[in-house]
Write a protein that binds this DNA or RNA. Structure first.
Length: 828
RNA sequence: GCUCCAGUGGCGGAAUCGGUAGACGCGUUGGACUUAAAAUCCAAUUGGGCGUAUAACCCAGUGCCAGUUCAAGUCUGGCCUGGAGCACCA
């Protein structure tokens, strides 16, 4: 065995062996229990960054640990390969996005292999390939059949200069990223997924996800945004065309209805024109036109000043008969509730601000009896008792909510209403590099889904990527014209493609049955492998990706395609990789290239370091000195093994009793096995796992420094210690341990070896440090035999000269003994 | 504004149940080996009393203020600071 550690040499060698022997292939059939470990698949942007390295290393160690512990592990990888960057690169070079994507995948695959990850490459999925997006389209059709897909007019970011729709990321400070002109809202007919049908169950089932962090669950709960309130209809008293009209509003504060002094509708409110008098028409139109342009800019400004204009018409308050004016203001949102709000300036801060600015009347209707507020300087939003509220006076406001709504329900102008902030999912993208939406428009039959046997609807190749102002897909001469599946007449294809989140909402299902060409996936196979036991990825996907995937799972269950309702049992959201306290980014110039680390130190050092300094969920600050330190440690381990190669036997035997120092080393190993196993099992605390690798290594060196010659017993004990260390390190230092195993004459791969076991009796030291406190403060520490009983512990403590001097002349009130740990003497 | 998370040496961080605060590492300092360097090894490293050495001892200390307890980094209440997410959601 070579005395020095040459990572580059051994890593290349074993990577080749693993690839040739398909060492990490997973078979569906096994008598072992299944375990599904999954990293969020990457977008093939060009090169791996350190965030990838961290993500995949964490999952890889989990997968290897579970495999060693007797599980049949599924650990796949793939590519989230549709999306904007490929299309932009293509437009820039007038090339094919597919070529760009393929090249990136090839490069990144090479890097993943260099990291020594235990993927089953036979299950690789690539979302931009027809054998995958065929099934994305097929799933779209299943949702369509289920009534979960619909088309409606929706606002998009529109750049008039470029004549195109922009993605949200392309709108910078309300302006077009390319030409810098102001982006407007424009209404286009778009495809939506009815995720709101699942709002309630998506919220409720968060409680089932005990393996998810509260931070992610709260973010999802906030996003879904459930609130309980009421809808009231307010009759319009002076509609300009004489029509009988109502304005419905949604409110969570029915208790404040007697304080309404005006009513606001959103600038986009559908009946706004009918509610505007001819005198006010011009001002209202101007305000609405402005709102259309301002929306994006306004959204980004932090201190928005509220503005609005009166419509000139009025409503009557059916609770008290008062008549109040109608306004439009952009603080009312057309997408939420009914698009109209009742304004109670005294008890709502936003209404208060608005009322102050436009001198609206105010009327206090909720009061704290102990400390009444006149609401002259701010709105009173705390609980209280109703005043100026007719028959409801004196009622507590929380009770009044129900009572007042009930009253309105009985009179026929109100209803109880649960409202969600979650909106339906807009999946139309006016771009090329995505899965085409499998729908055609027939001149006679209207919208028709593409029959399943005609899938996939292939992306056309005859496309001009140099065009500006429209989706490149529309330049194809072969794509658009087709025949109607119903009547056989002329039809045109939908040229929108799907949001890439559609592709990534089901990829974890495809891994279970990745090469199935007959079906999206086999139901039994998916039921066997899913749910994912451990999902690992960045917090940036806490809301959209995870919510869409949860929705997909529930919807596909309702389509009868699978039999579980949550896709990811446990979720680990890893922290960011920082350098010098800031997020690594090209613009800051503080990135670290994984290739350089592999080249200079090897993948094992990279793996060890990325796990070492912080727990996985926390941010990780990259330091060059830290890498260096890990490299030195691996050298130290290698030296320990290589210089002892002749002393190590893999079939060591331990005959008890042992010499004292040998017994101590055996105990140290058992303690390490127990600690490391528990640390991994308990939230994957790899940072402490690695500190325990170091402790064990230090202990073996210490032991050895006290030995001049090794007798047979020593050699067996040393073998046990070193082989255990190798096995414990094998999920992290995958190449080093494999090489050492092979050099020491191990049969097969160390990665096929079962995990180390510990003996509870040996996993504790033979002596303990007895801590003696007086009045809760540590006054002495005494090395004692671990077997001492409580009385003996107490006596030992009282016999200590230090303690004697401390308690001299005082009265012992109480003595507390914590077995195996401490004695606390309470004196007065 | 609302919600969530976090706050421990010079730094990253450790501390199953409330029971030795600072494991392990980085850095720093001193030393050994070496012609020298690298590598390696040894030692010290929370602050203060404390100063020339040695040995010991004492006090304070986990963002701040209270509380519960024999005992609090850990539990409770109230704040402060930083980060993240949502953000005119009626």
């Amino acid at each position: 065995m070579k005395e020095s550690y040459f990572p580059q040499e051994i890593e290349k060698k074993w990577q080749r062996v693993w690839e040739e022997t398909k060492a990490f292939k997973t078979l569906d059939e096994s008598d072992k229990p299944k375990y599904y470990a999954l990293s969020m698949f990457p977008y093939p942007s060009g090169k791996l960054h350190m965030g990838h390295v961290r993500n995949y290393t964490i999952t890889d160690v989990i997968a290897r640990f579970k495999k060693a512990n007797g599980f049949n592990v599924l650990h796949p990888i793939g590519w989230d390969s549709f999306g904007l960057p490929a299309e932009n690169a293509a437009m820039k070079h007038n090339a094919d996005p597919e070529t760009w994507t393929d090249e990136n995948i090839a490069y990144m695959t090479k890097q993943l292999k260099m990291l020594g990850l235990s993927y089953d490459w036979d299950r690789e999925v690539t979302t931009c390939k027809p054998d995958y997006y065929k099934w994305t389209q097929w799933l779209f059709l299943q949702l369509y059949k289920k009534g979960l897909v619909y088309k409606k007019e929706a606002a998009v970011n529109w750049c008039d200069e470029c004549g195109t729709v922009l993605a949200n990321e392309q709108v910078i400070d309300g302006k077009c990223w390319r030409c810098d002109s102001v982006v407007e809202k424009k209404y286009l007919s778009q495809w939506f997924i009815k995720i709101t049908d699942y709002a309630d169950v998506l919220l409720e089932d968060l409680d089932k996800l005990t393996g998810w962090g509260d931070n992610v669950k709260t973010m999802q709960a906030n996003w879904i945004g459930k609130s309980k309130g009421a809808i009231f209809k307010f009759p319009v008293v002076d509609a300009p065309n004489g029509e009988e009209m109502y304005v419905p509003v949604y409110t969570t504060r029915p208790d404040t209805v007697f304080g309404i002094t005006y009513l606001v509708v959103a600038p986009e409110y559908k009946d706004i024109e009918k509610l505007t008098t001819s005198e006010n028409k011009e001002a209202v139109e101007e305000y609405r036109a402005n709102a259309r342009k301002m929306t994006e800019i306004e959204r980004l400004s932090t201190d928005r000043v509220k503005t609005g204009v009166p419509l000139g018409t009025h409503c009557r308050n059916p609770f008290n008969g008062e008549v109040f004016p109608l306004w439009t203001a952009d603080y009312a949102l057309v997408e939420y509730g009914t698009g109209a709000v009742m304004a109670v300036p005294t008890h709502d801060e936003r209404d208060f601000d608005f009322a102050k600015k436009y001198n609206m009347p105010m009327k206090v209707v909720i009061e704290n009896p102990e400390n009444p507020s006149d609401c002259k300087d701010s709105a009173y939003t705390e609980p209280g008792v109703l005043v100026n509220s007719g028959e409801f006076n004196g009622m507590k406001n929380n009770e009044a909510k129900k009572a007042i709504t009930k009253w309105a329900v009985d009179k026929g102008f109100g209803e109880f209403k649960t409202q969600y902030r979650l909106r339906d999912w807009l999946i139309s993208r006016q771009r090329y590099w995505g899965a085409p939406i499998p729908v055609v428009y027939c001149d006679k039959c209207g919208i028709q889904p593409v029959p399943e046997d005609q899938l996939p609807v292939m992306l056309p190749k005859d496309v001009d990527f140099s065009v500006a102002g429209k989706s490149p897909i529309t330049t194809s001469k072969t794509f658009k014209d087709t025949v109607c599946p119903i009547c056989g007449g002329h039809a045109t294809r939908e040229t929108d493609t799907m949001d890439t989140f559609m592709c990534s909402s089901w990829y974890y299902l495809r891994y279970a049955d990745a090469r199935n060409s007959e079906k999206c996936f086999d139901r039994d196979t998916v039921n066997h492998w899913l749910p994912v036991d451990q999902y690992v990825g960045g917090i940036e996907h806490a809301i959209l990706h995870l919510l869409y995937s949860r929705f997909f799972t529930k919807a596909l269950r309702d389509c009868g395609l699978l039999d579980f309702d949550e896709p990811f049992k446990n979720l680990l959201t890893q922290g960011m990789v920082l350098k010098d306290g800031a997020k690594m980014s090209k613009s800051k110039g503080n990135t670290v290239d994984p290739d350089e680390i592999f080249e200079n130190y090897g993948a094992d050092t990279a793996r060890l370091f990325i796990l070492s300094d912080s727990p996985p969920a926390r941010d990780f600050d990259w330091s060059d000195a830290g890498v260096e330190g890990c490299y030195k440690f691996l050298n130290r381990v290698w030296r320990l093994i290589s210089t002892n190669a002749d002393n190590i036997t893999l079939d060591y035997k331990l005959n008890f009793p042992l010499a004292k120092e040998n017994d101590d080393l055996i105990r140290t190993v058992h303690i390490a096995i127990k600690g490391i196993t528990n640390d991994i099992s308990n939230d994957f605390q790899f940072n402490t796992v690695i500190s325990k690798y170091r402790e064990l290594t230090n202990a073996i060196y210490d032991w050895q420094s006290k030995k001049s010659d090794l007798n047979e017993e020593d050699k067996n004990v040393l073998s046990f210690a070193i082989v255990s260390l190798m096995k414990l390190m094998s999920p992290v230092a995958v190449h080093l341990t494999e090489e050492a195993w092979s050099e020491l004459g191990g049969i097969g791969s160390i990665h096929e070896q079962p995990w180390c076991e510990w003996d509870e009796n040996l996993a504790k030291s033979s002596s303990i440090t007895l801590v003696v406190q007086v009045n809760g403060k540590v006054k002495d520490k005494i090395e004692v035999d671990a077997g001492l009983n409580q009385d003996e512990m107490k006596q030992t403590a009282l016999d200590s000269p230090k303690i004697k001097s401390q308690i001299e002349g005082k009265m012992v009130v109480k003595t507390i003994v914590v077995p195996g740990k401490l004695v606390n003497i309470v004196v007065k």
